[in-house]
């Protein structure tokens, strides 16, 4: 890279989320700083400009009108929009909750009737704007985040795995908690990237990275119900992290 060239510009923003992604990015910012100029990152720095940038990382779901305004403005000012974390990619627990009841009822219950609070049904970024790269996680994996950034800095669309957690678990040669302990492990239907964190310590995967590519939800429900888990419990687990309702149409009919 020529030293005369200005550094590529990045922006890091949050909508409705827990800031987990922001923390991972902050922790790894020293690795990025030699190669990028951080135009805005309100969580980490005082001076922030909204101006055209090369890459914008957005965490959190769109859950309020001002989330949507912010997202629209960020999209208009970036070449690459990267959704980071389960909230931005799938909608996470906010969306799972909203899938079950009306937003107005929730506002009334939490803030009382006639409150000035405005809310939207929680949704991932791609419900409103085109998203170039989706990097799920809860929170995201630092290695994947750096790899995605490295590729985008060269204008390459990065490879993000959508294979199931079971692959990472088997490659680590863990005993299977679904088979050996009859735990309700969602590894078969959950996207990898975490390194099979929970099964590696003997716990069931609870699906926090969202669904893998074409998850076999009905088969998963069948196998869990054969192990004695009730269908509503199974559905609750499968949907807890915002997996879209379309994946469960056949299952809910059964």
């Amino acid at each position: 890279m020529s030293t005369n060239q200005p550094l590529p510009r990045i922006a890091v923003h949050s909508l409705t989320g827990c800031a987990g992604e922001l923390l991972v990015i902050l922790e790894n910012l020293d690795k990025l700083l030699p190669f990028v100029h951080v135009t805005s990152f309100p969580f980490a720095q005082g001076k922030n400009e909204i101006r055209p940038v090369d890459i914008t990382f957005v965490e959190g779901s769109v859950s309020q009108p001002h989330d949507l305004e912010k997202l629209t403005e960020l999209r208009a000012n970036t070449r690459w929009l990267v959704a980071v974390g389960n909230c931005a990619v799938w909608g996470c627990v906010q969306r799972a909750g909203c899938n079950h009841c009306s937003v107005q009822k929730m506002i009334d219950a939490v803030y009382g009737t006639n409150s000035p609070i405005e809310a939207l049904p929680a949704a991932p970024l791609d419900h409103y704007v085109p998203v170039d790269v989706k990097l799920s996680g809860c929170p995201i994996d630092a290695t994947q985040f750096l790899a995605v950034t490295a590729n985008l800095l060269r204008d390459h669309l990065p490879y993000v795995t959508h294979k199931p957690v079971c692959l990472e678990c088997k490659l680590k040669e863990n005993g299977c908690v679904l088979i050996e302990k009859n735990l309700p492990c969602l590894g078969p239907v959950t996207a990898a990237g975490c390194g099979a964190l929970c099964p590696s310590v003997g716990a069931a995967c609870y699906g926090c990275w969202g669904p893998c590519e074409e998850p076999q939800m009905e088969a998963m429900a069948t196998i869990l119900s054969e192990k004695g888990y009730q269908l509503d419990e199974v559905l609750g687990r499968l949907q807890a992290f915002g997996a879209p309702k379309e994946l469960f149409v056949r299952l809910e009919k059964s």
């Binding site: 998850p215 998963m220 069948t222």
Partner: peptide
């Protein structure tokens, strides 16, 4: 096929 999870456990082993 209806029961298959497509988890891929059968191949690494």
């Amino acid at each position: 096929g209806k029961r298959c999870l497509s988890c891929g456990n059968c191949t690494p082993v």
